[in-house]
Design a protein around this nucleic acid. Structure first.
Length: 271
DNA sequence: CCCAAGTCCTGGTTGC
DNA sequence: TGCAACCAGGACTTGG
């Protein structure tokens, strides 16, 4: 699942490859994943415009084009952004644009169609304004976290998944963060003590940073723009490990459902 | 047949 | 009582 570290891995590669280059022609677009623009208008809107510097907000990628046009992409659950040779055979293509020079193309591939491509004239404020600060590099601290947690009865894991508080955490990193912070996913968010809040803040930055360093988690479909997997899946300590022993106490991790999502955790180490 | 995922949407509940 | 804030759960998609 593309979460913040996976999206950052892709952003980094796109920012090295795209600025200054233009989309010569839109080869295909699946109207299902397109938002804010019509498929027949798309070529006229983006063809011939060069990319600017690629940025990220939580799990959203923002690809600016000349003329105040923006491509804002969410990879959803199985989305991939590839820079692929023109001749490569690729399935489940939702958007394909030939890049200047004609040797390669920018491809948005998405098996399950949870991904979205927003095309807007002007910055994509409507899509991004509800997001909290970036969970990895955003300007926030334990006091901010405390103010957001305060008074909430929702389970801690649901809080971490809510992009309005912090942007970028998904199911995998939520499990890893809670394991590292020794906090139960079921813990009512508002009951954290100050030391627990500080532990949580530290784990959020560290686990996401580790994910970025390892170029993301390829436990399911994630690959970078060259089709290469990351390696965070080898560093998992909680996600998907229910039934396997806790690295700290040895008892089997358990699985439960929190906020409609599966959660694996150690019921002894995580309180 | 059912599960997994992230976001959006709806409808119900809580608390001031 | 009224209202906003909050929270749970379903829809969407499709391969395993």
């Amino acid at each position: 699942m593309p979460e913040l570290p996976e999206v950052e891995t892709v952003r980094c590669q796109l920012d090295a490859a795209l600025p200054g280059r233009e989309i010569v022609s839109v080869e295909s677009v699946d109207p299902f994943i397109l938002r804010d623009a019509d498929a027949q208008d798309l070529p006229g809107l983006i063809e011939g415009r060069a990319f600017g510097s690629v940025t990220r907000a939580g799990k959203f990628l923002v690809l600016p084009l000349q003329g105040d046009v923006y491509l804002t992409i969410h990879l959803g659950m199985t989305g991939q952004l590839l820079i692929a040779p023109r001749g490569a055979e690729i399935s489940h293509v939702r958007f394909s644009g030939l890049l200047h020079g004609g040797e390669d193309r920018l491809v948005f591939r998405d098996i399950r169609k949870f991904g979205r491509l927003h095309v807007t004239l002007g910055a994509p404020a409507a899509r991004l304004s509800g997001l909290g600060p970036d969970a990895w590099i955003g300007d926030w601290d334990a006091d901010f976290l405390r103010s957001r947690l305060n008074g909430r009865t929702a389970p801690l894991k649901a809080f971490l998944l809510d992009q309005r508080h912090l942007a970028g955490i998904g199911n995998i990193y939520a499990d890893e963060i809670l394991y590292g912070a020794r906090l139960s996913p079921l813990r009512p968010a508002g009951t954290l003590t100050r030391p627990e809040t500080e532990r949580l803040a530290r784990e959020i930055r560290e686990r996401l940073g580790e994910g970025v360093r390892l170029r993301g988690c390829s436990i399911s479909d994630f690959v970078d723009t060259e089709g290469a997997p990351g390696s965070f899946q080898d560093a998992l300590r909680a996600y998907g490990r229910h039934g396997l022993p806790c690295a700290s106490c040895g008892s089997p991790l358990v699985r439960t459902v929190v906020g409609g999502r599966g959660a694996a955790f150690c019921r002894y180490c995580q309180r």
